[in-house]
């Protein structure tokens, strides 16, 4: 029983017909790992799936219903973590999480604290983002992702700038999401250490010929 199903996905970027008739399915509790060479369209695919980029054509089914990637109901169950972690450098880590998650759901300050603890970032909870390293910022963004409690995660290179412990953290967050019945689409070449039943992989760009 697949919760997310995509058929007939075509995307043009400029004059390039980047994604040609892509189709895939993701069942509940499964992580679809998107792999491909640089420029193959991994980011494009995740942005299209998140409704940030318009596809030429796309048949998207989410939990048994046809949806458009821009439907607010679909967005309410979806989190997107892109290259830029949407953190304000003048705000503290805790303030940023409270705002970013607060757009979606009510958060109390103990929720924010537990989210920061989940990513081992409670130390810099009250430090402005400006003073954090790129890896520390990534952890704060991961904390917001974890706290948002959405069912579908779109992760574009989630482990960027992270050390070995941080990469293990990404893997464990994904595992936690999957064991709760959630879905993940991740553009990453990292080995997430998932059992075979919980992972699938989608290679794109194999027929990304120029028109």
């Amino acid at each position: 029983m697949s919760e997310l199903s995509v058929k007939n996905l075509h995307v043009f970027r400029g004059e390039r017909h980047l994604l040609r008739g892509l189709g895939f399915e993701v069942p509940a509790g499964c992580c679809l790992q998107v792999v491909g060479a640089n420029g193959a369209g991994k980011t494009t695919l995740l942005r299209v799936m998140s409704g940030l980029l318009e596809a030429e054509s796309l048949e998207l089914t989410w939990r048994g219903e046809r949806v458009e990637p821009r439907d607010p109901e679909y967005h309410a169950e979806l989190s997107y973590l892109g290259h830029d972690p949407a953190l304000k450098s003048d705000f503290t880590a805790a303030e940023n999480i409270a705002f970013n998650v607060g757009l979606r759901r009510r958060v109390a300050s103990q929720d924010v604290r537990s989210a920061l603890a989940r990513v081992s970032a409670e130390k810099f909870s009250d430090r402005p983002i400006r003073s954090l390293s790129a890896g520390q910022r990534r952890r704060v963004a991961l904390a917001a992702l974890w706290l948002s409690g959405t069912r579908l995660w779109m992760l574009d290179e989630p482990a960027t700038n992270l050390d070995a412990a941080g990469q293990a953290l990404v893997a464990s967050l994904i595992q936690e999401q999957l064991s709760g019945g959630g879905l993940v689409m991740a553009a990453t070449h990292q080995d997430l250490g998932l059992p075979a039943a919980q992972r699938a992989s989608l290679e794109i760009g194999v027929h990304g010929v120029r028109t």
């Binding site: 998140s50 409704g51 940030l52 607010p72 109901e73 967005h75 309410a76 169950e77 979806l78 989190s79 997107y80 892109g82 290259h83 830029d84 972690p85 949407a86 953190l87 304000k88 450098s89 970013n100 757009l103 979606r104």
Partner: peptide
């Protein structure tokens, strides 16, 4: 530039 507008679009709010 910091990705906030992307989050505005995907956060499920109008």
């Amino acid at each position: 530039s910091d990705g906030t507008l992307e989050q505005f679009v995907v956060c499920g709010q109008p």
